[in-house]
Design a protein around this nucleic acid. Structure first.
Lengths: 341, 341
DNA sequence: TTTCAACACGAAAACGTTTTCGGGAGCTGT
DNA sequence: ACAGCTCCCGAAAACGTTTTCGTGTTGAAA
């Protein structure tokens, strides 16, 4: 087992100084052709590669991005990571992933762990619990220490930083408008509790669409679900006891569960009932019938977030206080769960 | 913006030496009660946290695990990461994620990038291209440098290291046997090309089950798919032109595509045709009908891999050459795509 | 021969820690 | 008064780099 070779070892072996070795490897003009060649040959032979940690310490840059998300077993977040990783790699950055598991405490611990030199900047989406508590001290603290943060999707106005989002409100509005255009009147909404930022915005979009079209809002067919793991009964109940034309769900899981419920009670989709979801994930695509849904390009979102972060990391003026909020465009992917025309 | 404070700054401010500060913070008995309190109070006030990079350099340990997988937008791999992250966190480790994007070159680049001091050890699953080329020099090199590697799922016998796998062969055998027990005779197989290790093993399990039950193998109903993105036509073709009782698919996507094809041509599931998949992911669970499938506990797999890696990292004798291969148990999750009894 | 530039290289500091070792101050016991 | 001891603390090395600055040697010009 041959351990990694260091500059010092090469220097010793070749009987020159460490500086000479370092400069030779960097093709410095200070070093004679002879020595340079000798050193380079030796370095190649022993497969010398500079130690990243030492470089990080010296340069005060780790070339690493930290990303904190609520969970990774979630198609959308996985695509975001994919996007981040891609752009990061192109720019020579690595990606450290931390999961908050929807817990405020873990989010805080993870941030503190990474903030102590391990990374150059954060990309993050707030955990549900953090959104509920509205406690963002861990984030502001990191920002105050001069570490850039880019938030995506589940963001908050309470924090002043770069953000990447979609226009949840508008996307929901358009989705519901499409249903109305297809002649639906009784459109149910399956959404999350209000403190989840995106859920609230999508709910508002739904309400706005109804109002714009003079459709009375019926609270009976608006379902706010707290615990996503136990949504089946509630959704079945909704569909069973109300005569509805369509369902607008704020995520894939609610949408597919609505479909299962409808099929179970013998309804035909989209003839008897239409379903529109949110997030163009793997479920919507492979469901039978496939689900009409609002696309939410996670790859693009992650890529954009990474780009913004790296731009800031490599920009000249360190503390440019001009933060931007990028909006990723969405569109409705029409599939089998809604009638054509 | 107050930058992170260092030992040196505290020392200067309090007019003591760096050593004194360091020792005070570690509650060393060498330091007087007075000084200790003074230092600790000051450190707390300025929220001192030791710099991880400096620690890494000193200790020659980064407390970071690198994980290299083909893709992250893939339910199984996401669950594995989740499992790794969980166990890693419990032991104070961070996780750097790199995606090979099914490319040999990216796998090599990523490994070399991380191997230069950024991490303490690897957890990885081979990319398809690497399995095809059978070129593992990048991995052996890393191992030779004394960096432990744990492989999972897509492994190879050509590398001598710790591994975590499932018994693909047995699991496939049992799945097919179950179909046979339910009276099926004409069981089609939808699998990958042979150089994908797990695909090959599952195919072998299928063949073994048929042989054990004296069912003649019919090459006509064995479909080997190279490009997963264009499998629809092939699968439709298979189901349309052969009268088959059941389909055994080596992954979720093949399974759900088979279901869509069958439904499309008016077949009833499971009455007319049964489907069994592999990997208990989100698709199988939410498909209509839901899919009977071989569970493959990614969380447990990732957790086990992380445990093995950390054990090795923290074990006394550095180069214990006794490598283990852990087998994660699987079982068939029976759902709506197969008849009960 | 002296002077000075060009050339080739080395010493040392710096990044932020931890830890070993040495030593000064103050006290006790003779 | 002095050895010897304990108690506190600081200097310095080490981890592996990069980079600035200093310096010795050589050759050419005067």
């Amino acid at each position: 087992m041959k351990r990694k070779v260091t500059l010092k070892q090469i220097a010793k072996e070749l009987d020159v100084s460490i500086s000479t070795v370092s400069k030779s490897l960097k093709d410095s003009a200070e070093i004679s052709e002879d020595t340079r060649q000798k050193v380079q040959a030796f370095a190649k032979l022993y497969n010398y590669k500079p130690n990243n940690i030492a470089l990080s310490l010296k340069n005060k840059k780790t070339k690493t991005i930290g990303i904190i998300i609520p969970e990774i077993v979630h198609h959308f977040f996985a695509t975001v990571i994919s996007g981040v990783e891609n752009v990061a790699n192109e720019h020579g950055y690595n990606v450290i992933v931390c999961l908050s598991d929807v817990s405020f405490d873990k989010e805080v611990i993870n941030m503190e762990m990474l903030a102590n030199g391990s990374i150059d900047g954060f990309i993050m989406s707030l955990s549900k619990e953090t959104q509920l508590k509205k406690d963002f001290h861990h984030i502001t603290e990191v920002i105050n220490q001069g570490m850039p943060v880019v938030m995506f999707d589940r963001v908050t106005n309470d924090i002043h930083c770069d953000k990447v989002i979609i226009d949840d409100n508008l996307a929901a509005f358009q989705a519901v408008q499409t249903l109305i255009d297809k002649g639906m009147k009784k459109i149910a909404l399956i959404t999350t509790v209000d403190y989840v930022s995106v859920g609230k915005l999508r709910t508002d979009g739904y309400l706005k669409a109804l109002k714009t079209n003079d459709i009375k809002v019926d609270d009976q067919i608006i379902l706010k679900i707290e615990d996503i793991d136990n949504c089946e009964g509630l959704i079945e109940n909704l569909i069973q006891h109300h005569k509805i034309d369509a369902v607008f769900a704020v995520n894939e899981l609610f949408a597919v569960t609505a479909i299962k419920s409808a099929l179970k009670m013998g309804l035909k989709i989209p003839e008897d009932i239409s379903v529109v979801g949110f997030t163009d994930g793997i479920i919507s695509k492979y469901s039978s019938p496939s689900i009409t849904t609002v696309s939410q390009n996670g790859i693009k979102m992650g890529g954009k977030a990474a780009k913004m972060l790296i731009d800031r990391l490599e920009s000249e003026d360190e503390d440019d206080e001009h933060y931007r909020t990028e909006i990723i465009e969405t569109h409705l992917v029409e599939r089998e769960s809604t009638p054509t025309l």
